[in-house]
Nucleic acid binder design. Structure first.
Length: 489
DNA sequence: TAATATTACCTTTTT
DNA sequence: GGTAATATTA
């Protein structure tokens, strides 16, 4: 037991050893060691007498599942030749359930397929959607093919989210979805959310059979709980009950996947979704220098106490607060790119931090690609930093972070509801808004703020916050104001 | 029907 | 600015 808790701080110990008589939500701030808590919790459960095959741990990505499995195996008391806990992705677990058989009948037959379906990729989905819809339908829904795909996925996973659609549009979408489902069934195809909805259907139709096939669990652990969609919550509810406590780890401040159907509702209202639950916060950060944490803390300073986390460094003391985040505005992206290169070299010379370990983060793929191209052209033989979107950077950390795209309209990202993305300076936008009341600014302010938080908390030592007065977005050169997020600095 | 001109788009991503 | 869907022409 001592070994199991060694190196953990008090809040981590509390989380790892919390009673399994009730559900638990661990609200883990960025860089506070949530994977450690998850893996030690599994080890703790085993030590507490729960047999390993009665433990189910679910993640979103295969990478996360593999990482957890690896770390579990490293904990000696677990690697004893017995069955390992079930550690897999939500989709992987659902697929396992659908692919297995019981009573001489395979489970995919139970939900209406004759042969085991083939899994559709993104392109296949678009092909089917192109076949079953025409221009008229897409115009009525105010989308192109790619956005229709997004709409259909959201509808399947979280119909309640689509509040911006009119009743007529919802009817049209329902018809499209019906056709789409029919088409897949006919050709024996399924897509990723069919794995989830199929598994949920099995659970609802024949819970007894499901538990015989998948097993009865005594503990279910979920990683990145804030990213779950309502379908996944429904699925979970078939395994979690009075005899099986849920141990969820997540961070409501890092919920950035609303656009693909994730719902922070169950995280924010955890105790009403899971009765009798207890909430534990992890606020000791082992990643960033205090000056960076100060900034991260300012982003959510107005949240109510219950959910507000104040990150405190568990690694650096008062005399090692690091370098204050630096804000710069450039005339354009060329100058910014050149400046980044110079600054990266300066830091390398001073601190021996490899340039290849530094990151340049963007809100948009476009601007990220633009920057990567600039390097390819101007610095073909030099080492260069990594370029990625903030979404892709989640969960990662870098000694040096250059956070770009901080212009109002780009980040926070605006959409004009006429469908035309007409971002520009705030002044231009407001003028346009007054000229045609039909075009209000559409922006998920809270999600953009969380995305900003994710960007800031990637940095270990150096953080730069960049905006440009002019830049090319959507093929046009536009004038931009500084992002409102820079006022938080 | 196939080649060619024109128009209408354009956030983030994993399984 | 680049691309993909749609409209037009031979």
């Amino acid at each position: 037991m001592n070994q199991l808790l060694s190196g953990l701080n008090d809040e981590q110990k509390k989380a790892v050893t919390i009673s399994r008589d009730h559900h638990t939500l661990v609200l883990a701030g960025a860089g506070c060691g949530k994977t450690t808590v998850l893996t030690r919790r599994i080890a703790y459960l085993v030590g507490d007498g729960v047999s390993q095959e009665k433990i189910l741990a679910l993640t979103f990505t295969r990478k996360a599942a593999q990482e957890m499995l690896l770390r579990i195996k490293l904990l000696e008391q677990i690697d004893s030749g017995f069955a390992l806990p079930v550690i897999t992705t939500f989709h992987g677990f659902a697929l396992k359930l659908l692919a297995s058989e019981s009573g001489g009948k395979s489970n995919f037959e139970r939900i209406g397929f004759r042969n085991r379906p083939r899994l559709l990729d993104h392109e296949n989905r678009l092909e089917i959607l192109a076949q079953i819809t025409d221009k008229r339908i897409r115009t009525a829904l105010d989308v192109d093919l790619i956005r229709l795909d997004g709409l259909v996925s959201q509808y399947v996973v979280f119909p309640g989210r689509l509040v911006s659609l009119s009743p007529e549009q919802k009817m049209i979408l329902q018809q499209v979805v019906d056709k789409y489902q029919y088409e897949k069934m006919k050709k024996s195809l399924w897509d990723f959310s069919d794995l989830l909805s199929g598994a949920v259907k099995l659970c609802e139709d024949d819970p007894g059979m499901v538990h015989k096939t998948a097993g009865v669990f005594e503990s279910v652990l979920v990683d990145e709980f804030q990213d779950t969609n309502p379908l996944q919550i429904r699925f979970l509810n078939h395994f979690v009950d009075n005899n099986c406590a849920l141990f969820a780890v997540g961070d409501d401040d890092q919920a950035i996947y609303g656009f693909r159907g994730a719902d922070i509702g169950p995280t924010i209202n955890f105790t009403s979704y899971f009765k009798g639950a207890e909430i534990v916060k992890l606020q000791t950060n082992y990643r960033s220098k205090p000056f960076i944490l100060d900034m991260a803390n300012r982003i959510f300073r107005n949240k109510s106490d219950v959910y507000r986390k104040v990150l405190v460094s568990g690694k650096y003391g008062k005399n090692d607060r690091g370098v204050k985040p630096r804000v710069c505005q450039f005339t354009d992206q060329d100058i910014m790119a050149a400046w980044i290169m110079l600054q990266a070299e300066k830091i390398y010379k001073k601190n021996r931090i490899n340039i290849a370990d530094m990151a340049v983060l963007f809100r948009l793929n476009q601007t990220c690609d633009w920057m990567a191209d600039w390097i390819r052209k101007k610095f073909p033989q030099k080492t260069c930093p990594q370029f990625l979107t903030i979404h892709k950077s989640k969960g990662l950390e870098y000694p040096v972070v250059f956070l770009c795209d901080l212009e109002e309209g780009v980040f926070p990202n605006y959409r004009i509801s006429s469908g035309r993305n007409n971002i520009g300076s705030v002044w231009d936008l407001i003028k346009e808004w007054y000229n045609s009341k039909k075009n209000p600014i559409e922006c998920d302010w809270e999600e953009e703020k969380r995305l900003f938080y994710v960007g800031v908390t990637r940095a270990i030592e150096y953080l730069y916050l960049f905006s440009c007065k002019n830049k090319m977005v959507y093929g046009r050169r536009r004038r931009f104001d500084r992002s409102r997020f820079l006022r938080i600095v």
